[in-house]
Design a binder for these strands. Structure first.
Length: 605
DNA sequence: ATAGGGTTAG
């Protein structure tokens, strides 16, 4: 009881606000839709293609005439919008084409070309995979029609790998592919590749590409140097960094703001705080410290090395100098205080952030939430959540994760469940490990249908989930007497269900499952190679005998059996005969004798 | 078309 009332209060009022703000959209559409029809009576006479190109409300025009157009014509429209930089229309049209399966390789290619700098990296990579799938499917090769990807395409794709997980192996594939297409890596490609190496902590590989480009007679520019430098920062290799800076200077390049800030990162990661402070002073005197970034780098490093007081000194100095800040500095100090369990200081600074910036920040909230959860300060957790709600800060992926883990750790599984549902409805994917453990605990707590909901969230969000999970949920569904769901799970995953569990499912279902599904379950069991026991038939027959109005189902079962090599055993046969008045003696006798004849015939064959 | 900063958890 207490759990649900808490859950009701928290996650999250915005789900209501959000959906209401979304509900204004269709409204807006229907207005524009009707007005465009009434003010443009001639539109119906325009060709569908022109209607699309000149649509004032593209989505509704597409709904009206989109299906009349071929993929080729739609691609022309994409091009039309692309050439006039109508990005909104490109997106709307492409989305419609995807939803209506009216896309080919060229659609993807045009779309990527026009939207390259409007889309985030992972989206572009996904689209790129779609192209490859589509080109195999349509047997079209990109090389035709000038569609061969060029170096610009590849640099866009590789740059996209910087922020993406698995970006490094993906980059290797792309390098291979561009070489297969007879392209050679140029300066920009090398720049992007080095950036990927750096963001994946691969300094040796970065060095290797750096040397390789030099050996090809290319002179590294500041981008290359800064990425290699950044690659050294993860491991704090300041010796290599210093050598690199010397090399750079000897090539006649002057370290700029980015280079020096990155060098600072190396020193900080290497624990050279004295040298770092000197470098910050150098940045200040060069006018490179007007932004908070170098201070952030140093503060964060100090705090993570346990020197929280020194970090705060930098923070205060920065505030005194009125360095331009977007709030990162606050965020770093707040999370540092939280890590050190200095909650009063953290709260004070959070308050300060709120008054300085006149807003709140989800990252700061997450830091505090996480800290409160870690020390188990339930009241502060709830207070923080209330505050987020008050200030209309939408929880993000991390917020949900923090909360769910916290609720699980406190054995508040129903609350965790509600939070996962909320998370899912906001479009965030909980991890499989989290779901899997929650399913287990919900099962233990007899929250069977809740466990099944989590299973479904997982199943419909991922291509493949741990095979053992199907069997696990099957046990839970049986325990919860959710027969129909159990049947669906069994049917969809029969190959992953062990023999003993199959047996358990079969007899539990025959005993208590939905009578209308008994024959379906029998057939499913048989078709997945399970040898149906005579006891199971006896159980099914008993169920039918208990409900004479299901006569047709019994007859159907009896008729189906001999074809698959089954025959009722003598005791079941007697049971049926004893009750045959309920079904029509004549009919039952016929069916039973047919069973024997068919079986005999099969045996003699 | 290529470069630099904060939050989870183990």
């Amino acid at each position: 009881m207490e759990i649900t009332s808490v859950a009701f209060g928290i996650p999250f009022r915005h789900s209501i606000t959000d959906s209401s703000s979304q509900s204004t959209k269709p409204f807006r559409h229907s207005i524009t839709d009707s007005s465009s029809q009434s003010t443009k009576p001639f539109s119906a006479r325009k060709s569908p293609k022109l209607q699309i190109q000149h649509a004032s409300d593209l989505p509704s025009t597409l709904t009206r005439v989109g299906q009349m157009l071929t993929v080729k014509e739609l691609n022309t429209a994409l091009n039309h919008f692309g050439n006039s930089n109508k990005f909104n229309n490109i997106s709307q049209l492409f989305l419609w084409m995807q939803e209506n399966k009216k896309v080919d390789v060229y659609s993807y290619s045009h779309y990527i070309k026009f939207m390259a700098n409007k889309l985030d990296a992972s989206t572009i990579l996904k689209l790129y995979n779609n192209i490859q799938d589509a080109s195999v499917k349509d047997n079209v090769y990109m090389k035709e029609d000038g569609l061969v990807p060029d170096l610009v395409t590849y640099s866009t794709l590789i740059a996209g790998c910087v922020k993406v997980k698995d970006g490094y192996p993906k980059t290797l594939e792309l390098i291979q592919e561009l070489q297969d297409n007879n392209l050679r890596m140029d300066d920009v490609i090398y720049g992007a590749v080095l950036a990927v190496c750096a963001s994946n902590g691969k300094w040796e590989e970065a060095e290797c590409y750096f040397k390789q480009m030099k050996s090809e007679g290319r002179s590294p520019n500041v981008y290359h140097y800064s990425s290699l430098l950044n690659a050294y920062s993860a491991c704090g290799n300041f010796q290599k960094a210093d050598v690199l800076i010397q090399d750079m200077k000897s090539e006649g390049l002057v370290p700029n703001q980015v280079i020096l800030t990155t060098l600072l990162k190396v020193y900080v990661r290497g624990g050279l705080f004295e040298k770092s402070r000197e470098l910050v002073a150098e940045l200040e005197s060069s006018g490179y410290a007007e932004d908070e970034m170098p201070y952030c780098v140093l503060m964060d490093g100090l705090a993570k090395a346990g020197q929280i007081h020194e970090a705060k000194v930098i923070f205060d100095k920065m505030m005194k100098k009125q360095v331009r800040s977007d709030g990162y500095a606050h965020s770093i100090m707040i999370s540092a205080f939280c890590r050190a369990k200095l909650f009063q200081e953290a709260k004070q600074l959070a308050k300060d952030f709120q008054t300085t910036f006149n807003k709140y920040d989800v990252v700061i909230m997450n830091s505090m939430l996480c800290a409160f959860c870690r020390v188990g300060e339930m009241d502060s957790v709830m207070e923080t959540l209330r505050k987020m709600d008050e200030l209309a800060i939408s929880p993000d992926y991390n917020t949900f994760n923090i909360l769910i883990k916290y609720f699980c750790s406190k054995n508040m599984y129903l609350l965790a469940y509600r939070t996962v549902e909320d998370m899912h409805s906001k479009g965030y994917q909980p991890t499989e490990e989290l779901c899997s453990s929650l399913i287990f605990h919900l099962g233990q707590a007899k929250a069977h249908s809740e466990a099944f909901s989590i299973y479904n969230i997982l199943k419909y969000s991922k291509r493949s989930i741990c095979k053992a999970l199907h069997e696990k949920i099957l046990h839970i569904l049986l325990a919860g007497k959710l027969w129909k769901d159990a049947y669906v799970v069994f049917k969809d995953n029969a190959t992953f269900i062990s023999g003993p569990t199959t047996k358990k499912f079969a007899s539990a279902f025959m005993k208590s499952g939905n009578i209308n599904l008994i024959n379906d379950v029998m057939k499913t069991l048989h078709s997945c190679g399970y040898k149906i026991d005579p006891d199971l038939f006896e159980m099914a027959v008993s169920r039918y005998l208990g409900q004479p109005e299901k006569k047709d189902l019994l007859l159907h079962l009896l008729q189906w059996m001999p074809g698959q090599g089954y025959v009722v055993d003598p005791s079941t046969r007697n049971l049926i005969l004893k009750n045959s008045h309920l079904f029509g003696r004549q009919l039952i006798a016929e069916v039973l004798s047919k069973q024997r004849v068919k079986l005999k015939a099969q045996e003699s064959r």
